[in-house]
């Protein structure tokens, strides 16, 4: 465990908590893509099947369970509890455009052709593109609430910190996982445009709105 890893995990957790707090306090999930949240729930479900096969540490197990629970509560809030506030019209990204290539790729490019390994690979590939419905929704409506941008910032920061973690692990442990690294780079690139807007607008007190 290095500083980048722990800060990355904290950012990830913070992002999920910010989103839940936003929905809970405003009693509304306006501006949030339910499709992205379903994809994240699917990402955690397929990746954390290793909870049943391998024990790493108490930290590892607890965090995985928290992430799973947060993801499912978020989906429940959007599609059940506050479904009347859900902006279904603008959440129109076609999920099959992501799911079909990601499923195909996880069968083609994996570490070993076993069910758990394919599902793990699927989760890594899917996570790299899971935010696209949310970014698509923002580009469609042309704006995002400030708290939603904080959520996105910490979610992007998490993956950027993981990149630093992988560089660190490569130098100190000689460990490097090509599937995770390539997907992590792709995932981080998707946030670059957003990071730019976040720094130039949101941090200066302006609302994020697109021209």
């Amino acid at each position: 465990m290095n500083i980048f890893r722990i800060l990355g995990d904290v950012s990830h957790l913070l992002a999920m908590i910010i989103l839940l707090v936003k929905i809970w306090r405003s009693k509304s999930c306006a501006g949030i893509s339910g499709k992205s949240q379903i994809l994240f729930a699917l990402v955690f479900t397929t990746r954390y099947l290793d909870l049943f096969t391998i024990f790493i540490s108490v930290y590892n197990t607890v965090m995985k369970v928290i992430f799973l629970v947060c993801a499912y509560i978020t989906v429940y809030m959007i599609y059940m509890k506050f479904h009347k506030t859900f902006d279904r019209e603008h959440d129109s990204f076609r999920l099959e455009f992501l799911l079909v290539p990601v499923t195909g790729l996880s069968f083609l490019e994996n570490h070993s052709f076993t069910p758990l390994e394919i599902l793990w690979t699927f989760s890594i590939y899917l996570e790299s593109v899971a935010i696209l419905p949310q970014l698509f929704m923002i580009s469609k409506t042309g704006e995002a609430e400030t708290i939603t941008t904080h959520y996105l910032f910490f979610l992007g920061l998490y993956r950027a910190l993981y990149l630093a973690n992988w560089i660190w692990r490569y130098h100190t442990e000689n460990f490097y996982d090509q599937i995770a690294v390539v997907s992590g780079v792709v995932q981080t690139i998707f946030y670059c445009d957003f990071f730019y807007l976040y720094v130039t607008k949101v941090l200066k007190g302006k609302k994020l709105s697109l021209p």
Binding site: D9, I54, I56, N60, K64, H111, R169, E173, D177
Partner: peptide, 10 residues
């Protein structure tokens, strides 16, 4: 075979 280093990450 499982790679523990990989499963250590979240």
């Amino acid at each position: 075979t499982m790679d523990p280093a990989k499963h250590d990450e979240l």
